[in-house]
Structure formats: structure tokens, C-alpha cells
Amino acid sequence: MSGSSRETTRFAPRVKGSGVQKVYEQLKASILDLSLEPGAPLDEVSLAETFGMSRTPIREALVRLAAEGLVSQLPNRNTIVAPIDFGALPVYFEALTLMYRVTTRLAAGARTRAHLEVMRVHQAAYARAVREGDVLGMIGHNRNFHATIAEAGGNPYFTGLFIRLLDEGRRILRLYYYKSFNDHLPRKYVDEHDALVAAIEAEDAELCDRLAAEHASQIVAQIQRYIAVDRTRELSLASGA
């Protein structure tokens, strides 16, 4: 992705006021859906022009994004969208799977009727996105569904960590869906989400743990298959003569 000024105009209209939160939210959304690709430059001057404000709120928004690991500052003080560290995926998957399990298990013992209602709202939105083939919708609603489960568990430390992991995973899933889309697994995830909600409502912690572990395992395997695909196996180099 080239030309930070040209790129930033694609995702953000001008906004008025201090706008730190708006800049933060719009940049974050563009990073997570890969409108701003890993490694893309984030020039404060160009961003300030795009958003129609001074560099101070831009700088503050970038600091927040850096704290979440979504942007990186280079030794020359230039800022870029943080690269995706594929070498760290094994430990990322470990943390993600653990958070799926612990947050779902805790939700079984602490959920309220209001939590269940919000889970079902996000689940319905996810199912609708699957039916419509809306990739960004699926990724976003899936994140919100599991974030609500974490919030129902009542541990803000687990919730904060899990949301960060879910957001980081949105970039990885978007890479996967760039190349191909097969709705078999998303349709299966609809049923698995329904089963998770039913287990949480029944306050069955053991079942929640098992279902969450199986759900996380399939997501991890889905991403691993994409990363490990070898397209050269079916590539013929034989002469056509």
C-alpha cells in the first residue's frame, strides 16, 4: 500500500472537534479489516489533513493503537500499521484457545438474562452475515458475540485480554477470507454458537468448557490450513509441446 495521504482518504471522512476517539475508532476499523494493510505508513501530517484537525489528536490516537499492538513506531520515528507476526501464531493460538474456554466457563456461572439477550442479538447478526456472505460482518459479529460471553463472565482482566486477542484475530481471518470463502465452516459456527448460548443459559460449566475448546480448535485449524497450503503441488511445469 503506497502513498499514506491517498490511502487515508479512502477510509475516513473529515471530522470536527477534538475527535481523538473518532480517529482512533476509524483507524482501528481500517487496520482490522485490512483497508490499511500491515506495514502501511501512517503519516501524522497526511492523517491530520484527511481528518481535518491538528496533529495532536492524531498522535494521541496512534499512541492508543500502539498500546494495543496495532501500530508500530520505527527507529526513524515513522509510524506504520503493525505487521502480523506469523512466527508468534503458536503462542497466540494457545492464549486464544485458553480465553475461549475460561470466559465461556465463567459465563455459565455469572451470566444474567440481559447477557443472554445480547449474546442472541450478536448471534442473530452473525447468522445473517453468513447467509448473506458478508465476510466483514461475520468477522465483526463473531468478535462481538464472544466479547459478550467474556463480559458475562465478570472478570475484566480476562475480558480485556480476550477482546485484544479477538481483534488481533480479525486481521488474520481477513487474510484467510481474501483468498477464498467457503461458507461450510461459518454455517457450522452458527450451530456451535447456538450450542454455546444454550450451555451458558443452562449454567453447565463443564459443557461450556468442552464446546468452547472444540470451537476454538476448529478456528485455529482453519487458519493453520490456510497458512500451510502448498499451491505448488498442483502446478505443472511440464512443457506443453
Rank of each mutant, 00 (worst) to 15 (best):
D209K: 15
V20G: 12
M1T: 15
R105G: 00
G140D: 13
S35G: 04
S239H: 10
L165V: 12
G160N: 04
T232M: 04
E168D: 11
V81S: 11
A221P: 11
L74T: 15
A199M: 11
D85V: 08
I58Q: 07
V91Q: 15
V20D: 09
Y176K: 15
K22L: 12
A107M: 06
E168Y: 06
T79G: 01
D183V: 13
E192L: 13
F145V: 02
Y178S: 12
E201M: 03
L89P: 05
F158H: 10
Y100V: 10
P13R: 15
T50V: 03
F11G: 01
R131T: 05
S54C: 08
A147N: 01
A228K: 14
G240L: 14
L74K: 15
I58V: 03
D167P: 09
A228Y: 15
L62C: 00
E117A: 13
T50A: 06
G52T: 00
L185D: 04
L32D: 12
L96C: 03
E68N: 00
F145I: 03
R120V: 04
R170A: 05
R128K: 14
Q26D: 11
G3W: 10
I219N: 15
G140W: 01
A66W: 06
T104R: 14
Y226G: 01
A40L: 00
I163N: 10
R55I: 11
D33S: 04
E44L: 09
E7Y: 11
F162N: 01
R231A: 11
M138L: 05
L62W: 04
C208I: 09
V102Y: 00
S30W: 10
G137E: 00
N142Q: 07
Q218M: 08
T103L: 09
S217Y: 13
I80R: 07
A212V: 03
E168W: 12
E192W: 13
S18H: 14
D43E: 06
